[in-house]
Simulated assay, not measured.
Amino acid sequence: MANSKKDHLCVQHVPLFTVLERAEQEQIEQLIHYKQFKQGEQLFMPGNPQQLFIVARGEVKVYQLTANGKEQFLRVLTQGEYEGETWLFGNANNNIFGTATTETEVCTLHRTDLQRLLKKYPVLAIKLLEKSVAKTVALEKQNRLLMIDRVEDRLAAYLLNMAKAGASDSFTIAMKMKELAAFLGTTPETLSRKFKLLEKVGYIKRQRRQVVLINPQGLGMVVRHY
């Protein structure tokens, strides 16, 4: 890990701060600390200081550990996305880890600095709350997926959710296949077989991460107890 200071505004990449004027963004930038991480380096883990981690460049895998010590993939952070907003309000990080999946540059904002900003700009508190609620909803959906017995049912439910979220039967899966497999609680090999199964029966077409639902109704019939 290395520290650095860039001449661009990190906050310009973050939707959280786009509600503010340029001059206000520049004031916040003075509170930002820059850090660089190599692929595979840990950004945060339980017990770390309470900070907001903002991805300026690169990609971060966020996960938690199950009771038996296995990684449970949660999400991928890309440019402009952040993690740690709940920790800044006093919630301890008991089981959340973040690892750089490529060379990554991160901007951090300490708890005391963010709390002062929230008092000065109340609209930021509303944006943080919205983001926190969205993450909670996403985690609940993932937990519901993992309760489904068959992998093909989980995959079908995930694809239907993606189409619904984007209001289109054609979409791009943001996660890599290895990450999606972990997200769905299976192996990459099994996931690949289930994708081929859904393609074979004519429910979907897939080109790498690009997916088109050919028969959404048929795909819906695959899903059980969801």
Rank of each mutant, 00 (worst) to 15 (best):
Leu31Met: 02
Thr187Ile: 11
Tyr203Arg: 07
Leu20Ala: 10
Gln50Tyr: 07
Thr104Trp: 00
Met175Val: 08
Thr99Phe: 01
Val11Gln: 00
Cys107His: 08
Gln142His: 10
Asn215Asp: 04
Pro46Asp: 00
Ile126Ser: 12
Ala134Cys: 03
His225Pro: 02
Leu65Ile: 04
Leu184Gly: 06
Thr78Asn: 03
Phe97Ser: 05
Leu128Phe: 11
Pro46Asn: 00
Glu83Val: 12
Lys70Ser: 04
Val212Ser: 02
Gly202Ala: 09
Ile96Ser: 11
Lys135Ala: 10
Leu16Gly: 05
Ala165Trp: 05
Glu105Thr: 10
Met162Phe: 06
Arg206Trp: 08
Glu59Gly: 10
Glu81Ser: 06
Ala56His: 07
Gln25Pro: 03
Thr99Cys: 01
Phe37Asn: 06
Val133Cys: 01
Val201Cys: 02
Lys61Arg: 14
Gln217Gly: 14
Lys6His: 07
Ala92Thr: 08
Thr190Trp: 00
His225Leu: 11
Asp113Val: 07
Asp149Arg: 05
Tyr34Glu: 13
Asn215Lys: 03
Asn215Val: 02
Lys205Val: 09
Gln12Ser: 14
Ala56Thr: 09
Lys6Cys: 03
Glu81Arg: 14
Tyr82Trp: 09
Lys178Cys: 04
Ala163Gln: 02
Arg193Gln: 07
Gly84Trp: 11
Ala2Cys: 08
Glu199Lys: 12
Leu124Ser: 00
Val211Thr: 00
Asp153Met: 09
Ser168Gln: 01
Ala23Lys: 14
Val211Gln: 04
Phe171Tyr: 05
Ile96Glu: 05
Glu83Leu: 15
Ala2Lys: 15
Leu117Trp: 12
Ala156His: 05
Met147Gln: 15
Ser132Gln: 06
Pro122Glu: 08
Thr78Asp: 02
Asp113Leu: 07
Leu155His: 08
Phe53Pro: 14
Val14Phe: 01
Lys120His: 11
Met147Glu: 14
Gln217Ala: 15
Lys178Glu: 14
Trp87Asn: 15
Gln51Thr: 10
Val55Trp: 01
Leu74Trp: 03
Thr104His: 01
Leu114Phe: 14
Ala156Thr: 00
Arg144Asn: 13
Val14Ile: 11
Gln25Asp: 06
Cys10Asp: 13
Met177Phe: 13
Arg144Glu: 15
Tyr63Asp: 09
Val151Asp: 06
Val55Asn: 01
Gly47Ile: 00
Gly220Arg: 05
Met1Glu: 03
Arg111Met: 04
Leu219Ile: 00
Asp7Thr: 08
Glu71Ile: 01
Thr190Phe: 00
Asn91Cys: 12
Asn161Tyr: 11
Leu9His: 10
Lys35Thr: 11
Tyr226Met: 04
Gln115Met: 09
